[in-house]
Design a protein around this nucleic acid. Structure first.
Length: 256
DNA sequence: ATGGCCTTGGTACAAGGA
């Protein structure tokens, strides 16, 4: 079974690329972030024509998440239950024997700002909700754009980024708090090439210079850890014309 | 260098992203 996550930075712009990528990589489930579409405008028909079904949770202009799946999705949850939020950032569903959570973590803009405080509060709520989800369904995957580079090796220039947004001790502690639930960073279960990033700034020829951050992640629960066969970042879409600034991350699980 | 690029909304540029 193959799962994937991709921040597409506008599904309207990237829909043809997403459909091409689905045909090429053939994941069973794809979590999308930054769809930037209200649910009325979500292109269900285009996915259905290619053999996929989708559950969406969007809003106008900003944010927006979706799950695209070959198999039906049940018990769909939108956003974090009990956490009042005007922003559409979480969608969860049960697919087969898996609980799949797709998330677009807040950016936080600048340490010390109101948006940073929201980023912390939002993650507190996410973590406490996931604690219950894991108890109810131990076979859980949390994937999406976490907007944190967990360690210095996830940053092209750790000195320049030290203390900057995505690299603050508070954000890294939040990531550790998720791992403390019994989740594992699937990418780091394997030996990986140094300088592996999932995001490159549109500016400064950052992709060509491979100046990026690894901020898109797939976390698997204890119960799934032994079934993880591979985890990789697919840079190919980032090379294409009019790319998203993020690359997809892929996870291969044993059928078991 | 408080920059650079990209998307949306709306039709000029501001906000947000990371």
């Amino acid at each position: 079974m193959r799962l994937a996550t991709w921040n597409v930075n506008s599904l309207s712009v990237r829909l043809p690329q997403v459909l091409d990528w689905l045909a090429t990589q053939s994941p069973d489930v794809l979590a999308l972030q930054e769809t930037k579409l209200t649910d009325e405008r979500f292109p269900h028909e285009a996915f259905a024509a290619a053999g996929w079904q989708a559950q969406c949770f969007g809003q106008k202009t900003y944010n927006g998440v979706a799950l695209v799946s070959r198999a039906p999705m049940a018990d769909v949850v939108r956003n974090i239950p009990g956490f009042e939020d005007e922003q559409a950032r979480v969608i969860a569903a049960t697919i087969g024997t898996l609980r799949v959570v797709g998330a677009y973590f807040p950016n936080g803009q600048e340490p010390g700002s109101a948006k940073f405080a929201y980023k912390m509060r939002w993650q507190d709520a996410l973590r406490e909700w996931l604690r219950g989800e894991l108890a109810a369904q131990p076979r859980l995957v949390l994937m999406g754009d976490f907007n944190v580079a967990p360690e210095d090796r996830d940053v092209h220039d750790p000195v320049a980024w030290a203390g900057q947004i995505h690299c603050t001790p508070e954000e890294r502690a939040q990531f550790q708090g998720l791992l403390a639930l019994g989740l594992h960073d699937a990418f780091r279960l394997f030996e990986q090439a140094p300088k592996s990033w999932s995001w490159w700034d549109y500016r400064n020829l950052a992709f060509r210079r491979n100046q990026g951050l690894r901020i898109d992640h797939i976390l698997v629960s204890d119960a799934l850890r032994g079934q993880v066969r591979a985890c990789s970042i697919d840079k190919a879409p980032r090379r294409s014309e009019r790319p998203s600034d993020h690359a997809p991350v892929l996870l291969d699980l044993d059928a078991g």
